[in-house]
């Protein structure tokens, strides 16, 4: 049986790597990558150089995606195109439209399609929020006390709602929803890696959150397996173990600067304005959800994933962090 995979969000690191790994799989005939902008180079960062990933420039917010799916007889859709921070041009409104409307269009197209058999959605553990009223460890079926009301986490909650609706309406399609912890690794550029790359690390005074990371290689492997085998359901994905923010700072050899919560936010805004002022647009000020994460942290249970795949991430949370931030001085 031939397999044609559609990957959204291929202009970004993990999406690109997933596309090239799938393209290298002999069991897969075609890999179609879509995104709003062309990928810098699908072969960068040690991914398999492949011209086998066909790039199609599609704005997910438009119904064009349905034509792509219909024309290519796509049977597997890997939806990676969730952005966690407002894009460099355009603000939060654009980000929300991209995340939520984009997913709705994609799912609408999948629902119409007679060929789609498997859908893999990238979500985030941010859907659990961060709060002092919640259990220490979230399993997939834990109902958080308060649903995130801002930004990326809110988008992800809405996206998950549409995905659940889709899964109900098309019970014949295997839908896997993956809630990833923060990606970590040499190739990752996210609000969190930028936050951790600062020369001095502002932290919230009196709080030391528990954090979890998933190494980019492990994330790609999970997505590859999900795209090539049927594992319907929702799965948390994170490296084993936990790091406290204070441990992260110590492992990276950077000084932590504890600030009272209001000053912490202000600092984020100030630095944001400053670096934007000098023309560096990659920086984003701390969002409300990041501030909450930096207070209360978040840890998820990954037993369900390990059981379903019979596999555990190669990198623990600590190893994933070290792969990016470990100081050279350490053995």
């Amino acid at each position: 049986m031939t397999q044609t995979v559609l990957v959204t969000g291929v202009s970004r690191h993990i999406g690109a790597r997933v596309a090239s790994v799938l393209a290298a799989d002999p069991a897969i005939d075609r890999v179609i990558g879509v995104d709003t902008v062309p990928p810098p180079s699908l072969s960068r960062d040690g991914g398999v150089p492949s011209d086998r990933v066909e790039f199609v420039r599609v704005d997910l917010r438009s119904p064009d995606i349905a034509q792509v799916i219909a024309a290519a007889d796509v049977d597997t859709v890997v939806h990676m195109s969730l952005v966690s921070a407002p894009p460099r041009s355009g603000g939060r409104a654009l980000m929300k439209e991209h995340n939520v409307i984009g997913t709705m269009q994609l799912l609408g197209a999948c629902q119409r399609s007679a060929t789609v058999r498997r859908v893999v959605i990238r979500s985030t553990t941010a859907v659990y929020g961060s709060s002092p009223h919640d259990p220490a460890v979230f399993a997939e079926d834990t109902e958080p006390g308060e649903h995130p009301g801002h930004g990326y986490a809110k988008d992800a909650c809405e996206v998950e709602g549409y995905v659940r609706g889709f899964a109900r309406r098309r019970a014949d399609v295997a839908v896997s929803m993956l809630r990833f912890a923060n990606f970590m690794g040499p190739g990752i550029d996210s609000p969190l890696t930028r936050y951790l790359s600062q020369p001095v690390l502002p932290t919230v005074l009196g709080f030391d959150p528990r954090l979890q990371f998933v190494h980019e290689g492990d994330a790609v492997e999970v997505l590859r397996r999900m795209a090539t085998e049927d594992h319907p359901g929702t799965f948390n994905v994170a490296g084993d173990g936990v790091l406290l923010l204070s441990q992260c700072a110590r492992r990276a050899g950077i000084a932590a600067l504890p600030l009272p919560a209001p000053a912490f936010r202000l600092m984020g805004d100030l630095v944001g304005d400053l670096v934007r002022g000098v023309g560096f647009t990659g920086y984003s000020a701390y969002s409300a959800e990041q501030v909450r994460l930096m207070r209360y942290g978040r840890v998820v249970d990954t037993t369900r994933l390990a059981t379903a795949l019979g596999w555990r991430p190669k990198y623990s949370t600590a190893a994933a962090f070290d792969s990016r931030f470990a100081t050279a001085a350490r053995r």
Partner: peptide, 29 residues
Amino acid sequence: ADLVYQLPVLGHLSRKTGHTLACREDADR
């Protein structure tokens, strides 16, 4: 009590000494 986990310092010291929130999920786990 969850009051402990809202407070600065006390919340994370309490976690570091092995305590957690009194809730069914954490107790069962």
